Amino acid sequence: MSRKPRIYFPGAIYHITDRGNRCAALFYDDRDRKKYLGIVEEAHSQYPFHLHSYCLMSNHIHLLLETINHHPQQIMSMINTQYAIYFNRRYEFIGHVFQGRYKASLIDSLQYFLEVSKYIHLNPVESGLALSPESYPWSSYNAYISSNHPNPLVTTEKVLFYFPEPKIENYRLFVEETKAER
């Protein structure tokens, strides 16, 4: 049985997730995370795209990615292939690093777009890896809330556009509001 083709058009925005094979770790240390982000940067050079948000967890990743002229399949194929080669060489493993095909949910509304950015940035907090989203170093959150943490991989303008001035503070409030405050 063949897979359903993914919906693609230039400017499509996706919440992309990928998990380690059998839910195993994708990243054992900061060197692995830096390598992954370096590969994302290489993919960005070869297949330009906008990365609005990301988070690298121990056994999975989240990307909020907007295409320009390349299908996400090309982008993710490069990222996953290059990272799998690196990972298997470094740890002397054989076989699949990622569990099946990456997931790509098409973002079809402004509310969904903003909620996915929030979800990605809260993932380490919800998982108990960090007390606050800004204390987790392997997400794009600090690129949004601090001018001291510029991140050339991340495009913050589109998300921040939808918040009133002061945009950064209002985005922070949006992300960090507790469920009790909603």
Rank of each mutant, 00 (worst) to 15 (best):
A143K: 01
R6Q: 15
Y171D: 00
P5D: 15
V159E: 05
Y8V: 01
Q74K: 14
D30H: 00
E169R: 12
T81C: 07
Y162T: 06
Q74V: 05
R33C: 10
L173K: 15
I13H: 07
I16A: 06
Y54V: 15
Y86I: 10
R90K: 14
R33E: 05
N21T: 06
H121S: 04
P48E: 09
L129C: 02
L63W: 06
R33Y: 08
H52C: 08
R33K: 12
F93Y: 14
L64R: 12
H44P: 03
R101L: 12
L173F: 13
T178V: 00
A25P: 00
N59E: 07
V97K: 11
V159F: 06
Q82Y: 14
L110K: 14
L26Q: 10
R33H: 08
S58L: 11
Q73V: 13
L64F: 11
H50A: 15
L153H: 04
I7G: 08
D29T: 00
N80W: 10
L37P: 07
Y144H: 10
P152V: 05
I107M: 04
H96C: 01
P72Y: 04
V97N: 09
S109R: 04
E41F: 09
I94A: 07
S146R: 11
A25M: 13
L153W: 00
Q82H: 15
H71W: 02
L160V: 03
N123V: 13
T67K: 08
S117N: 15
A43Q: 03
D32L: 02
P150C: 03
I61L: 09
L110E: 14
F87R: 07
Y36T: 00
I13E: 07
I68R: 12
L173P: 00
V116C: 15
H15R: 03
T155E: 14
R3I: 10
K118H: 03
D32N: 05
F9H: 11
P5S: 15
T81L: 08
N88S: 06
R90T: 14
F93T: 02
D108L: 02
L122F: 07
A25V: 04
G38K: 01
P10K: 00
A130N: 13
N123W: 11
I79C: 07
S2N: 07
R172E: 13
H121Q: 10
T155Y: 02
F93E: 02
R172V: 00
N21P: 02
R172G: 01
F98C: 13
N69L: 04
H62F: 01
H121M: 10
G128Y: 15
A12V: 02
N142E: 05
C55M: 06
V40Y: 04
G100V: 12
S53W: 07
N148Q: 14
Y28K: 03
L64T: 11
